[in-house]
Design a protein around this nucleic acid. Structure first.
Lengths: 315, 315
DNA sequence: ATGAGGGCATAAGCTGTCTTTATGAGCAGC
DNA sequence: GCTGCTCATAAAGACAGCTTATGCCCTCAT
């Protein structure tokens, strides 16, 4: 059993208006990375070396993190340091933050490197938001010195870039492939109907019929968005909005708060479903699937870094 | 070659040589939170007020974030500020980091509040690691002033705490419910077989048979762990380890690196599957499902905060 | 048109945090 | 006992971020 000793109670719980910022209660990324290094290497000093600081700095940083969290994280001994049980748990949670930060970094770097990049990627929003950072991380692991640039836009914009030779590889979601482009399906996405767990639909026995879906006011992206287009097409142009929001995130938030059923990409709600913040409502008789495709100008099969990235996306 | 990989196995992200730690390339949590506030409120000044700093501080912070990333994030105008296209993308990525930080905070706070907490929770590792932070966040949203304490351990330890009245509500994963406890199923988990995308099994046509699974050396958690017990039971005590590792994370990392097939909880690999870092191998004829249950001492139905939390976990 | 108000930028000074260097102390194995 | 590993402590310096105090720009209402 995890023996977690609270250390000292310094109560800095100021109930600030509007919700206190999490930044003051969570160690910064450097500290979390250091903790991961300690977990992996089993020694403060080694972790310090790896993260490029001195041993006393590491020691002090870990200690102040323990003070901040009010929990002992590592068992120090003259032969090294091991995580406490609580420390192991904290480290697992910390790893998620650091992984998110790595994805952020990979993406941000691609946004920056416009100029001299050896691989220019154009992607639709959903792909750029949810999938590309992971791919870029994988690519970096294989080819650390490949500078990538990223341009996000809709399908038409992606096609335009490719045809103007301003991008080497594109990714689009959607039913049809823009003319002038070759493509390969790299994954499947699906729009799904979700509700808050206590919504009546969350407990329905039988799957939802298309007609029922079309007849119910839904939380939707605005007209013109990719997901809305797919939905409208599937329902015959008849989706009834309960409210229209301009970002996937806003739609999710509204659904979570129980405002009503929402229709969203499976990619966007994986986390929410896993934790049951949202519940999936089965649907019958309507095809809400869509392919995710890699695209390139007809005849110009991807080569070099583009091929590398392409192969990553398919495994 | 039995286990005892200790912490070494935790191979999260190798420090990229030359690149340095991600912490230096990613804005700190405060800056990301500020960016989210700007996105939401449409004004630097308003975001500053909400995050409890002055307008010049916000201005400078956003600016230095833009400098750091090399991308313009915000379109300033005398009527307010809107995100640029790149800024919207960056904000979406940033949101993931902040959400992970919020989960971290919720969990960490529960580890700390041992003493005077009004709700004492005991949970098995998998649940504590993957689900509980989300539940705690939801609980905090409903009842902001409920101090929660968390104790993580195996099923037996959870039962022990409950029976000793050292915990109000427990969560266990497993086939059987410890004696002396009432329980309710709150979710279903399943062990799944995963491989790196280029492993031969990733492209098999037909599902794997139980016998085949039992005959193949697998990357596994050490004997005695919850997942290992379920697997052994399902296969008839016959799982053959290729290597045994002491943490879910280590198993994942080994599988991703292509060392072989691994067996893991569905909960642990949601993200990896979504991004195709791992591929699920269908299995036939073996029941790898397990229930996740909330448990409490027989007769003592959860009341107050415990009931509240329980109802959250079921939706 | 003119003043009020919201919104953002700049400059200067202060404060706190994290860092390094330098040192001490505990434990293992030869 | 010596060497090598570990971690802890102390003192001093560097840097980032904050605040206060301004100023400019634009829009809207009078």
């Amino acid at each position: 059993m995890s023996s977690v000793e609270g250390q000292q109670g310094r109560n800095g719980s100021r109930a600030a208006a509007g919700g206190g910022s999490v930044a003051h209660r969570v160690p910064d990324l450097g500290a979390l990375e250091l903790l991961l290094a300690v977990a992996r290497l089993g020694s403060l000093g080694a972790a310090a070396r790896e993260t490029g600081i001195t041993q006393p700095a590491a020691s002090s940083r870990i200690r102040s993190m323990e003070r901040q969290l009010g929990v002992a994280l590592v068992d120090r001994s003259p032969r090294g340091s091991r995580l406490t049980d609580a420390g192991a748990l904290v480290t697992d949670w910390a790893r998620r933050i650091v992984e998110a930060a790595e994805a952020f970094d990979a993406g941000a770097q691609a946004l920056r490197d416009r100029r001299d990049s050896r691989l220019r990627v154009a992607a639709s929003m959903t792909i750029a938001e949810y999938l590309l950072p992971g791919w870029l991380l994988a690519l970096r692991a294989q080819r650390p010195d490949t500078a990538v640039s990223l341009l996000a836009g809709n399908s038409a914009a992606v096609a335009e870039r490719l045809l103007a030779d301003e991008a080497d590889l594109g990714f689009v979601e959607g039913v049809s492939v823009p003319t002038g482009l070759d493509s390969v399906v790299i994954a499947h996405d699906r729009l799904i109907v979700v509700t808050a767990p206590r919504h009546p639909w969350a407990r329905r026995g039988r799957p939802l019929e298309g007609a029922e879906l079309a007849a119910t006011p839904l939380i939707l992206r605005e007209k013109g968005s990719g997901t809305r287009q797919v939905l409208d097409a599937a329902l015959g142009g008849l989706a009834r909005p309960l409210i229209e929001l301009s970002s996937t995130t806003a739609v999710k938030a509204a659904a979570v708060s129980g405002a009503g059923p929402a229709v969203l990409s499976e990619l966007a709600v994986g986390e929410e479903l896993a934790v049951r913040r949202l519940v999936r409502v089965p649907v019958q008789g309507v095809s809400l699937a869509r392919d995710l495709r890699a695209v390139w100008p007809t005849g110009h099969r991807p080569v070099g870094p583009a091929r590398e990235l392409l192969s990553l996306t398919r495994g």
